[in-house]
């Protein structure tokens, strides 16, 4: 029970932290917004001038923007699908009593500790390389022609790499959810005549809905800004086939030295992320309530 007096004191005491955080966010954001209205190219310094919404017009009407938007959604959706289905599957497996459970669990989390650039390079050079990669060797051993992943299925390859990185996270969250399920509920369902599939569908899955929500929310935030994996594998290509919004902003501002256009793209990305977050919260936020 806080008195009025202590409440005022509390607000006063936390205000420096709040102000610091606010400044941390507001200053870069407002500078980005400011730049986005300028004709600001690093190749012609000192020539900045106010050009209103022109940068936005260029960014939003660029065909690359729509390609990147589609790729972003595919990347996020594809990785979410694989990690959630795979995470639930792996969690169900790991929940079975077995010998060496502790070690297996550590092995499963391991990919999470590998840096994105490193894991993408490992995949690129050790697995997916059409000459030396393991997949190429396997294909040759089976009598098929090796498949050049990054040339013919660049987005799919990146989805695979990112899904591999995030699968451990999803698995861990699902596993803890699974272990918190009251065994008596499953036994009651067994007595009530529910077979394995029905028990999973009617008891286990609803119990895990909150964990699934958490995985979707957290992963979406990180997946919208995937960058390193694209940079070290395909560089967004071929063409724009594996460019997402984040990578497009980078290409615009740093490869073409167009700070104004890049800033406009960044603001568009922020707005899109907020729209996605809004719908996510609307759609599944109620799972988090009770």
């Amino acid at each position: 029970m806080a008195t009025d007096h202590s409440r005022v004191a509390a607000r006063f005491m936390i205000s420096p932290a709040v102000l610091l955080l606010l400044g941390w966010m507001i200053i870069p954001l407002s500078m980005t917004i400011y730049f986005s209205f300028l004709n600001y190219n690093l190749l012609s310094p000192g020539m900045e001038e106010w050009i209103g919404f022109t940068n936005y017009e260029y960014f939003l009407t660029d065909p690359a923007f729509f390609a990147a938007l589609g790729n972003t959604l595919l990347l996020v959706g594809g990785v979410l699908l694989i990690t959630i289905v795979g995470g639930i599957g792996l969690a169900l497996l790991l929940d079975q009593p077995m010998w060496g459970q502790g070690i297996v669990r550590i092995l499963v989390i391991a990919p999470f500790f590998v840096m994105p650039t490193v894991s993408a390079l490992v995949w690129k050079n050790m697995f997916m390389n059409p000459v030396n990669g393991l997949f190429a060797h396997a294909a040759k051993a089976l009598g098929f022609a090796p498949f050049d992943f990054f040339a013919h299925a660049p987005l799919f390859s990146i989805i695979m790499i990112v899904a591999w990185q995030w699968l451990p996270f999803a698995t861990l969250i699902m596993l803890t959810a699974l272990q918190s399920l009251d065994q008596e509920q499953l036994e009651a369902a067994k007595m009530d005549g529910a077979r394995k599939f029905n028990r999973f569908f009617h008891i286990t899955l609803p119990h895990m809905s909150r964990a699934i929500t958490v995985v979707i929310l957290i992963q979406t935030i990180f997946l919208l800004s995937i960058f390193a994996e694209i940079l070290v594998t395909t560089n967004g290509g071929p063409g724009y086939a594996s460019t997402n919004i984040t990578y497009l902003v980078y290409a615009q501002s740093l490869l073409q030295f167009d700070v104004g256009g890049g800033s406009a793209g960044g603001i568009v990305a922020v707005i899109l992320a907020n729209i996605v977050a809004f719908f996510l919260m609307r759609m599944i936020g109620k799972n988090l309530e009770t």
Binding site: D182, E184, Q185, E187, A188, M191, P206, H207, S209
Partner: peptide, 11 residues
């Protein structure tokens, strides 16, 4: 069977 924890389905 009626369980000690009731084992009702919470959802």
């Amino acid at each position: 069977m009626v369980f000690q924890s009731y084992a009702l389905y919470p959802h």
